[in-house]
Design a protein around this nucleic acid. Sequence first.
DNA 1: CATGAATGAGACTTCATTCAT
DNA 2: TATGAATGAAGTCTCATTCAT
Lengths: 196, 196, 196, 196
Amino acid sequence: MTPSPERRRELLDTAAEVFAAQGYDATTVRKIADAAGMLAGSLYYHFDSKESMLDEILSAFLAELWDGYDAVLAAGLGPRETIEALVTESFREIDRHRAAVAIYQKEARTLSAQPRFHYLSDSQVKFEKAWLGTLERGVAAEVFRADLDIRLTYRFVRDTVWVAASWYRPGGQHSPDEIARQYLSMVLDGIALRPT
Amino acid sequence: MTPSPERRRELLDTAAEVFAAQGYDATTVRKIADAAGMLAGSLYYHFDSKESMLDEILSAFLAELWDGYDAVLAAGLGPRETIEALVTESFREIDRHRAAVAIYQKEARTLSAQPRFHYLSDSQVKFEKAWLGTLERGVAAEVFRADLDIRLTYRFVRDTVWVAASWYRPGGQHSPDEIARQYLSMVLDGIALRPT
Amino acid sequence: MTPSPERRRELLDTAAEVFAAQGYDATTVRKIADAAGMLAGSLYYHFDSKESMLDEILSAFLAELWDGYDAVLAAGLGPRETIEALVTESFREIDRHRAAVAIYQKEARTLSAQPRFHYLSDSQVKFEKAWLGTLERGVAAEVFRADLDIRLTYRFVRDTVWVAASWYRPGGQHSPDEIARQYLSMVLDGIALRPT
Amino acid sequence: MTPSPERRRELLDTAAEVFAAQGYDATTVRKIADAAGMLAGSLYYHFDSKESMLDEILSAFLAELWDGYDAVLAAGLGPRETIEALVTESFREIDRHRAAVAIYQKEARTLSAQPRFHYLSDSQVKFEKAWLGTLERGVAAEVFRADLDIRLTYRFVRDTVWVAASWYRPGGQHSPDEIARQYLSMVLDGIALRPT
DNA sequence: CATGAATGAGACTTCATTCAT
DNA sequence: TATGAATGAAGTCTCATTCAT
């Protein structure tokens, strides 16, 4: 039922690239096949539908993401260090799975409505719990400001990180860790120069 | 061929809502017609294609946006005040044109490739010039930090503002101006509590 | 949702003819459209799938059949007269719905497995109850022979009638009623000459 | 190219079973391969097409059938005895080749149109000649009733016998010979109780 | 202005078949 | 002999669009 995992991976990577570039709906199966150097019908030897390719791309990405996140959350760090670690982990994930992240950004909201993609909602809930919880811990520990709407702050930080997938290109000027450092600096301390 | 501008507006608003909710490609002309209480074919009395609806939605939005931006940029404010005014203007635009902004966010990158939508690229260039220029002025004036990559900062601010369209719902808890104030506070000063 | 019932009927009659001639699976939607003088895609304005055409053809046929059968069964006739009336009714149905009957004969067994076509099984059960019950009444009333396996007899009579749809052509040499009379004569009295 | 006749036989039997259960057109080569415990492509080592499997199944069946029929027809029996022998032979054939008979019943009409399967028409003609001739001899010899349309009678007897393949299961309650006896009793003498 | 019906291009998918290994 | 992977033709269905009424 699932022959040759390497070929599947190759094809999924190709598909993810096309999905990310053109959007899932605008991507025809033929375009994927062209990019993979085969005929459209041949894809169906490896996958049973266009949708299942998308499914596999997204769930593989989320699985890896949560591997990283769970490790961070289990490490028992303080709120600020946790946020730093999560952001850094996120940029590494963007670096490794740029296409998957971009697809996720664009399509997740619509997809979650379909039963097959309910795991996207589940992940989002878990995600919110982790970040929001950390922020709350930080406010309580007087590490983060208390005068901001906490949900707004959550969205601010969350979006700030993930939208980066839309412009990030691996192998660019800055390494993921460097970008993470700069972003963290902005998020935590702001872009305004502090009066000394 | 195209009478009754009010009806057009109504229909465009309906279309924008559907485009925003389902994505342009996933939206069928029939869904728009359903939402408008008419048959698919009837839309062609008002518009000559699905694409031209999209075009009209996006260009109307951009026209309004630039009305506001141009006024701000012509006002001769300092860098920090300019950023504040632009952000506030943006959130007002999101409030008024949530659907259009959401569509823009999701589709702009792909659309710009088509000649018909080159004005999206033009706008983006102009946009970048305005923001990046203001930030540079701010760094020079020692209003903004100089230790950050300026392009990274630009993207940070830009994304930080516009992604809000993906969750913002008019008539919610916070007014656009209030959201702008909080966002500005975060962007400018960061979320970390400053040691006093 | 269901515009112009006459056009639908026309198209369904056309479809039934093609299904009957070539078999459901071997019939392409294009063949139906050709026979109807339109393009394949146009059929989907009237029906939502090839399968739903089949569904409508079969269920309309069964509805009419049961109208006739129920009237017969409610008439309170004796066993032999009931059998005679059912057979006559069946041949009339074959005359009116030849194509539908032929399709039913060929495809019913396979289709019943699908949930959508469970009503075929239901009908078959009801059918068996009616015929088998009548035969049993006849054996009890000493109108039919008691030395035969009753289920075998049931199948014999049932098949005898319905297979006729495979060769019957309306407007042929014999009227449905005439064919019914001859078949009944054979089924009831046999083809062997009785010694006088 | 085609070694091991036993394996071929096995595979053909498997194929026949699937064809009979699902219909020739609805049967994919993959289903046959699944049932045979191999991959679809592997079948092509043994056969050069799906159609040639069907061909081989049907022609093998017809060959055996005519072996039996020809023996009966050459035996110089009286009309009634000939009919009895043919019916008995037919039920034996159904017992041995149930799947092939079922396929034949369902597909023969459509297949005869193809040149490759013209032998089906030929067989049918020969078949009709044998049965119709015997019936005519019987009418002339005052063994069969003269008051019936002879072609109608032919179809009656023919269908009556062969449809049994659609419900017959080998190893059931009745042996083929027993079923033949009961069928003959019905066909010859009718199901009505004769007044004594 | 809107409907009802149709067009035609193109999408996803299935499947018999081939062939190197 | 059988597998794994691919081909290519064809099938069902969707959808933007058109047009007479």
